[in-house]
Amino acid sequence: MEEKEIYEGVKEAIVEALGVEDDEVEAGSSLFDDLGAESLDLLDIVFRIEKTFGIKIPRGGLQEEILSSEGVKEEDVVVDGALTALGAEKLREKMPEVDAEKLQEGFRTDDLPTLFTVQTFVNIAKMEIEKK
């Protein structure tokens, strides 16, 4: 599946879940800051993306999923719920679409979804579609 097609499907899911206008949504839009999402909205978006593409996105720590694919141990990248310097570095590499200034050592992994952009969901969907 072409990335453009995935982007359109993700965009539609976001527009429907958040009730925003089509032209408000861009690849770089931050879900929380630009589009006003709340935590439940992320689940809503995930459910809609799953339905659209017939995929299953793992719950409970997308960051762990992303980091585990890097072949590093969890304790090297996350300690007491916060990113280590290595964890922050790996995530910045893996998620170039999010605000790198904020993704530093000590950043709480629970807060990671607040940095998600539209492109993050495109990447997640793409990853799961490829696994299929």
Binding site: G19, L40, L43, D44, F47, R48
Partner: peptide
């Protein structure tokens, strides 16, 4: 709940 969430 998921269906109701979809329906808003």
């Amino acid at each position: 709940a998921q269906q109701m969430m979809f329906q808003k």
